[in-house]
Design a protein around this nucleic acid. Sequence first.
DNA 1: CTGAAAGCGCTTACAG
DNA 2: CTGAAAGCGCTTACAG
Lengths: 338, 338
Amino acid sequence: MKRPTIADIARRVGVSQGAVSYALNGRPGVSEATRVRVLKVAEELGWRPSVAARALTGASAGAVGLVLSRPPSVLGAEPFFMELFSGIETTLKPHSCALMLQMADDQDAEIEVYRRWWAEGRIDGAILVEVHVDDRRLPVLESLGMPAVVIGGLPGGAGSLPSVRSDESVPVHETVEYLAALGHRRFGRVAGLPHLVHTRVRDEAFAEACARLGLSDPVTLHTDYTGEEGARATRRLLSSSSRPTAIIYDNDIMAVAGLSVAQEMRLRVPDDLSLVAWDDSQLAQVVRPALTAVRRDVPALGAAAARHLLSLINGETLDDVETEPARLTPRGSTGALV
Amino acid sequence: MKRPTIADIARRVGVSQGAVSYALNGRPGVSEATRVRVLKVAEELGWRPSVAARALTGASAGAVGLVLSRPPSVLGAEPFFMELFSGIETTLKPHSCALMLQMADDQDAEIEVYRRWWAEGRIDGAILVEVHVDDRRLPVLESLGMPAVVIGGLPGGAGSLPSVRSDESVPVHETVEYLAALGHRRFGRVAGLPHLVHTRVRDEAFAEACARLGLSDPVTLHTDYTGEEGARATRRLLSSSSRPTAIIYDNDIMAVAGLSVAQEMRLRVPDDLSLVAWDDSQLAQVVRPALTAVRRDVPALGAAAARHLLSLINGETLDDVETEPARLTPRGSTGALV
DNA sequence: CTGAAAGCGCTTACAG
DNA sequence: CTGAAAGCGCTTACAG
């Protein structure tokens, strides 16, 4: 019942522990014949390396960390994170690298978790999500010297930490131009948390796209990403004297909430009002009308980040990676003004 | 820049490593004065225990594992899992215990991950979710002797592994009786995967509740939990000659999809058709009409499982824990037949 | 190509 | 109450 160790294998094969280690790790220093026998016995015994022992000899922890600081209700409503995990893990798995997950209350708590994980030798690196405008995590991770990749953010915006990102201004422009082509002139935007970099990027792209079309006063309202605040923001937009005819949301759940508000206010979607969701989960597709959405491949984003992190842990120095921009996927919630 | 070790502290304080270890771990064997000095120096140096070294000396891995085997798209649409993680972690955190997460393709792959994690000394125990009717994981984990708690399942159904569960038949009866009181006589149920124990339990409770009310042929259709299959099942139910006037769903996204189907088919909710969702996320509340839902405290469930697992790891022997049953939360999607 | 030994950072009997 | 030492399971120079 006791776990077999390298010593058990050595005894059984009749060689030294060192030889077994070399054989197991595919390193030179043992004859082919010995290697084969060692591997065979290891297999028979059901031997697995002790991660603790390996970590202690300086190899690696065999795990990377990810800390999230948003309330669970918001995380739950956002398919984004689960899809991201899935992409990350699919990539990590063949390298026998695990994902450590933790939720924190705020950025300081998050920093504390990274510090502890790193000091305890628990992780080899980290993936950061949801970059803030003045992100306190970045300088700390840099000073720790811990390999880390940032998902999102601005090009070069993460200091020495490489980022995996896509240009979010592209789909914003695409969406605004598409809606303008349908005859819309008054736009509203129900955005996420204002201190997040990607919110800022979308905000600016939105303002710029509207300005370029000569549209005067596009309104952006910020929320905490919950359906509740999405509904409230939508109500405010639709109650204004210059009510928008098209609203762009920063996630799916707020867009669904917005759709309900439009129904309450007896506005027809898309005849009176066009709605665009962001991220495009199942959610956008099960409501009626189905929601036009800005779609991106979230698992692929996670996979790219994980690959990047593995390279970084291997000592390579890396630049930012630019992934394909999200693209507008039109469905029934957008249409020409009637 | 190098991590301080126990030897550094010993040198600085002028005592032996052993004494430092005792002091740091709050064990007898050092004077109060020494203990205080050791702690102070450890603090100054920013010392943290190496999990690898601790794990190697047989202490513990300081982590528990959770493996999920469902496609990412389904996981993403299901707020359940994120909320569960959140409850688990909040409980684990004060014990400096981390959560290792992995996704697997099927139960065999899942078993392989548990085996590996356990053999590698990576985890101290595991939390199992989504118990199958003949769950292959259970006997394996028992034979490994790994502490594990099962979320859901039948009382005593996990063999020697303790489970944390609530009686899911209670809310099913509550829901059916409530709908019957509103005048409904023909029920439909859009269920999840048929090989999951909780699906089975709800199926049976549903049949029994209907039988008890003398209702003849309640129909249950099984799905993969996606909105798409939820919509299809709803269409089938509503196209039958004896169309149900009330449908109970096994999650939120399918109920939302069902609501859209009802609209497509020009059925008024709740005048012509009542709908009940399960789990009650934001999603149920942002659509119109808001969905009546069977609500349970998912983070609390996760927290209970984590507490239970920590006790188990500490060597206690435990029984199953029964948590409060989910309860029906009426909203606008259910009403008296008109 | 192989063996013997030191070392990673901690814990824990065992002497003093 | 404290010190010296062995040991956890592995890796890695260093001799042979």
